[in-house]
């Protein structure tokens, strides 16, 4: 296609770069997924080969399903990720709205304080968090994880969302006030829909570290009933022997839910962008 804005060689070059990047990014995932469907010997003999008739095996998945409570682990991961995500988005958006909409003493200071968490990793406070959880009796509960992940996700969420909320028209909010809408209605029905693309971005950035985290489940909730998938998969990694079939199968299964959530949010993201374009 030869037009004023795009020429074939340039489009081809751009696509080649993007394609190369996609391959590099997806390659490890691809290797995990193909090897999850192979026999143990085949994994080591030819790790890059696709599973063939001789090498195909679902032994990994069978082990995962029979051993341990993988369904429970999945459920735990799901609950922790979704509830944390919900809290981060709700409280983050509310705090961002307050910071961007209301003038009050210490507004700027409060904003800086809330953004500080972006620079200071929450893991530095692990010992204090553990003490806190022990004192409140929350060790080995999903609540402990949800609280920690909410705290971990809030700074970036507030930072990104408050920037976006500043762009929402004052006139629109004022029109709502003149019509007698409460500040909550203005927030939920007028402002939130307009920052939906930003919400989707924040959701993706928040969700993935939570789903993949090993540190806090290991420290705060290692009990059998509260294990998450990432922690659960560790039982197959031993000091001397590792059940690679099971590890790869567990990891493959663990990709699916994040992928689904990501697809949901990215569709939101695209819809938000196109809605903005025709406004």
């Amino acid at each position: 296609m030869q037009t004023a804005r795009a020429s074939l060689p340039r489009a081809a070059a751009a696509h080649a770069v993007l394609l190369a990047y996609t391959l590099i990014a997806l390659f490890p995932v691809f290797v995990i997924v193909i090897n999850a469907f192979k026999e143990r010997r085949a994994i080591f003999n030819s790790p890059l080969a696709l599973p063939g008739p001789e090498t195909f095996s679902t032994i990994g998945f069978e082990t995962v399903m029979s051993q341990g409570n993988f369904l429970l682990y999945f459920q735990n991961s799901f609950i922790v990720t979704l509830v944390s995500l919900f809290c981060v988005l709700l409280f983050g958006a509310m705090a961002a709205f307050a910071l961007s909409e209301y003038k009050f003493r210490g507004n700027l200071l409060m904003g800086l304080y809330l953004a500080l968490g972006i620079m200071i990793p929450i893991r530095l406070g692990t010992v204090a968090i553990l003490q806190l959880m022990v004192a409140t009796g929350l060790v080995n509960t999903l609540t402990a994880l949800i609280l920690v992940y909410t705290a971990q996700g809030l700074p970036l969420a507030i930072f990104i969302l408050s920037e976006f909320m500043r762009t929402v028209s004052d006139d629109l909010k004022n029109a709502g006030r003149v019509d007698g809408l409460s500040e909550y209605r203005i927030f939920f029905t007028l402002v939130l829909p307009l920052v939906r693309p930003a919400m989707a971005t924040v959701a993706v950035f928040t969700m993935i570290p939570i789903w993949n985290d090993l540190w806090f489940p290991l420290i705060l909730a290692p009990a059998e009933s509260t294990k998450t998938v990432t922690l659960g998969a560790q039982v197959f990694i031993g000091q001397f022997v590792t059940n690679w079939n099971a590890v790869l199968a567990a990891l493959t299964l663990a990709i699916i839910p994040v992928l689904v959530l990501y697809l949901i949010f990215s569709r939101q993201l695209i819809r938000g962008i196109t809605a903005g374009a025709v406004k």
Partner: peptide, 28 residues
């Protein structure tokens, strides 16, 4: 504002994007 007996028209129109024209007019 809603209790002052006023109505306001803004420079940027400020219509509610999620409501129809009818919905916009009847919300208040």
């Amino acid at each position: 504002p809603a209790k002052r007996g006023i109505a306001m028209v803004f420079q940027t129109y400020a219509l509610y994007p999620h409501l129809t024209v009818k919905g916009n007019m009847s919300l208040g």
